[in-house]
């Protein structure tokens, strides 16, 4: 699971109102190189919850993202490269996603988050 996916996943348990962002418990993560596409990043930037991306990257051991951002930073290739790396190159392989409201754990196994709900959560 990459962090763009994390940026849209939310706890889907019935009744939960603040299910975003899910906290990351990383047991194993890997990095895979992806082609750098600045246009995609510029297009994606306004749709991203920045704080969630920063904290997710931090929990995967990557601390290079600035806490505060503004659109003018998209002119900087250095910034875009960091954004690219955090968003698309970090993979959570084993661990869990944790609902911020209930503490319920969604396991991540072989890179696949299991968001299936129990009967009483639907």
């Amino acid at each position: 699971m990459r962090l763009l996916t994390h940026n849209m996943l939310s706890s889907n348990i019935k009744g939960v109102t603040n299910g975003f962002p899910l906290l990351i418990e990383a047991e194993k993560f890997i990095e895979k190189t992806v082609d750098f596409n600045p246009d995609f990043l510029k297009n994606m930037y306004p749709k991203i919850e920045w704080k969630a991306l920063v904290s997710a990257a931090t929990s995967m051991g990557y601390n290079q993202l600035p806490e505060e951002v503004e659109p003018s930073m998209l002119e900087s290739e250095e910034f875009l490269k960091k954004f690219h790396h955090a968003l698309l190159e970090l993979h959570l392989e084993e661990g869990a996603l944790i609902c911020p409201e209930t503490g319920r754990r969604f396991a991540v196994i072989k890179g696949i988050p299991n968001m299936l709900l129990h009967e009483d959560e639907v």
Partner: peptide
């Protein structure tokens, strides 16, 4: 698991999520 293997065989990246489509709760317009 099969999808993951197929993607690997063709050397493409595909994110996979286990979820019931009816219970998807996605944020934003990504």
């Amino acid at each position: 698991e099969l999808a993951s293997q197929n993607a690997e065989d063709l050397e493409v990246d595909m994110e996979l999520i286990q979820c019931d489509i009816n219970n998807l709760e996605w944020k934003g317009q990504i």
